[in-house]
């Protein structure tokens, strides 16, 4: 399969159906790259015409803004908005809840009205429209728990789309004690991902990993690559990385499909 950039579409004088905003983790982190690949494979397999910005993509500015550095946020955000305007971008799908939130709730203050959707919402829409078909297959009957990301869950109120996708895989979905609006953070948000923890008794991701282990699930499904990285580390800290896998919902759907490309 071929992943095309906006520049390539523009050269052909065409617009894709949607821009896939990959995000920094999805672009650079080895674990998160596999999520980007899985999502691209799904879109490709069901014939959604999408583009990426490629080298023209940049950070949304979320970690800078939440760390307190408004200058860097403004630099990045306004440059991104220029890029969007250059290509006439109207619709964005992203695999990152932090990118989703900032496009949806903060870019409008800077004059950018973008129709942004998170990949789990997008896939759920496609499922309901019948464009995406999900069969249980490999995950049939497996015990799976779902970790709500803060920025899709509590912050943007999206608890069900990811769960509906997981349930479409015919799995045995078990909830952790703290779920939906009570979900516990993985510890990465607010730019914590990019610094050492403040002094304390334990790491937040260890606390969350312990809760996930307690469900007896063999897979922890996530919808955020920050959570993915943190939970993977948490499982390593508990030496459970071989028994319990952390998977993005896009990877699970991809694995359930017959994708040869």
């Amino acid at each position: 399969m071929q992943v095309k950039t906006m520049a390539e579409f523009a050269a052909e004088g065409r617009q894709p159906e949607v821009l896939f905003w990959v995000g920094c983790l999805g672009s650079y982190d080895a674990r998160a790259q596999r999520v980007s690949q899985a999502f691209a494979q799904i879109l490709n397999a069901i014939g959604i015409e999408f583009a990426i910005l490629g080298k023209e993509e940049s950070c949304t500015g979320d970690p800078a803004r939440r760390a307190g550095n408004e200058f860097i946020f403004q630099m990045l955000a306004n440059q991104n908005i220029q890029t969007f305007n250059n290509y006439g971008i109207k619709k964005i799908v992203t695999t990152c809840p932090h990118c989703f939130n900032i496009f949806k709730n903060e870019y409008p203050d800077l004059g950018a009205q973008i129709d942004v959707i998170h990949h789990t919402q997008f896939l759920n829409q496609l499922l309901k429209e019948g464009r995406l078909k999900i069969e249980g297959g490999v995950f049939n009957g497996q015990k799976i728990t779902y970790h709500d990301s803060c920025y899709m869950g509590r912050v943007n109120g999206e608890y069900e789309a990811p769960r509906e996708l997981i349930q479409a895989l015919d799995v045995d979905l078990v909830e952790m004690g703290r779920n939906r609006s009570n979900g516990l953070c993985c510890g990465a948000g607010g730019a914590q991902m990019f610094k050492e923890d403040e002094p304390g008794e334990k790491r937040i991701n260890t606390e969350r990993a312990e809760e996930a282990i307690g469900t007896g699930a063999s897979i922890v499904a996530v919808n955020c690559s920050f959570c993915n990285v943190m939970m993977t580390d948490g499982m390593k800290a508990k030496e459970k990385q071989d028994e319990i896998k952390i998977m993005d919902i896009a990877e699970m759907i991809r694995d359930s499909m017959n994708i040869n490309d």
Partner: peptide, 16 residues
């Protein structure tokens, strides 16, 4: 990006 990277932003598509 939050890290100083040596790889390109779209390297992940190479495998695809």
């Amino acid at each position: 990006s939050p890290w100083q990277m040596t790889i390109e932003r779209d390297d992940w598509i190479k495998e695809l």
